[in-house]
Design a protein around this nucleic acid. Sequence first.
DNA 1: TAACCTGCCAAACGCTTGTTAGGGAAGCAG
DNA 2: CTGCTTCCCTAACAAGCGTTTGGCAGGTTA
Lengths: 195, 195
Amino acid sequence: MTPSAERRRELLDTAAEVFAAQGYNATTVRKIADAAGMLAGSLYYHFDSKESMLDEILSTFLGELWAGYDAVLAAGLGPRETIEALVTESFREIDRHRAAVAIYQKEARTLSAQPRFHYLSDSQVKFEKAWLGTLERGVAAQVFRRDLDIRLTYRFVRDTVWVAASWYRPGGQHSPEEIARQYLSMVLDGIAVRP
Amino acid sequence: MTPSAERRRELLDTAAEVFAAQGYNATTVRKIADAAGMLAGSLYYHFDSKESMLDEILSTFLGELWAGYDAVLAAGLGPRETIEALVTESFREIDRHRAAVAIYQKEARTLSAQPRFHYLSDSQVKFEKAWLGTLERGVAAQVFRRDLDIRLTYRFVRDTVWVAASWYRPGGQHSPEEIARQYLSMVLDGIAVRP
DNA sequence: TAACCTGCCAAACGCTTGTTAGGGAAGCAG
DNA sequence: CTGCTTCCCTAACAAGCGTTTGGCAGGTTA
């Protein structure tokens, strides 16, 4: 990686942290510059605008996310194993891109209205196709219960996985894999003791 | 209700909708005024500041939420029935205060740092005590599995319930009670078919 | 040494923000 | 009719916003 590309990534990382902590709109370029140890105007040597920083943060994250997801989906696993792999992969992404995930969670809905961020909508459609398709496959294969509303289940599963970014801290008590294991155990088998 | 109090509530409702749709910081008082059919300055006849609108929206919501929760907690139900009642009550609150819940979700973490909004932290502590306590009671009574990390379970349950505010639309396909039923079925019994 | 590129600073720009001050129309009270 | 209150408008304010411009130190190239 060239030194300038390295510096760029460094600045984007600090920007992502500030965006995640304060929200995109509440974050001023002066705050980002403070956190990076420079003045506001100096950021414009590296980036076109505040918005393009956000853009680069989100698109980089989504790129890596889909690399992982596509690998899982191409592996030809059964429905239950696919769900397990997707959840585990998701928590790994949260571990690696905590700030980006938190930003995505908070801002995606508003941003996707803008043409520049329309790829967020595309990603969400693809996302829904992957998860909902797997759940449907599981119901057809009698691996998942058929008496549950599948769209509702999808929403619950999706949301819980990703909101974890709001409380997860890398290097904490639980590894991403351990969190995935616990979460899968709850969603797949329930928290109630079986009679 | 006096006519002026009525008008006040009306304005707060439209403000809450705009806050929920665009985020608090991205919402200008001019946008709120537009939605209310008046000019920006005119809002200050009714309210001290933009912040005090937010304050009143959130504290009103939390007041009603805790009225419902306290009733449930005082009913002396068993652990499983308490969880069921709390979840159902939560979805009812989402039905009645969708905008306020969405705002709370997005802004609570940042706001609770301000002294003015410290009651958000208090509420969160009380909230955790109620849910975590009930889960612990259930584990002790062998109603809930003891092999799951209870704090992790609490976070998952809490998050999934409240993020529902981001996609729920009143008057939609599912009633709050139906959503609660489906959600409880998933969390308590799991989505996997039992062998 | 001379020319050049890189990475930042200093200072300002036009614009939007939340908020305020004064006024005026409508309705009700005396 | 007169005076008062309610509710909004007009017009402006200072502060803060994202962004631009010009320059300057230090290392690299020739």
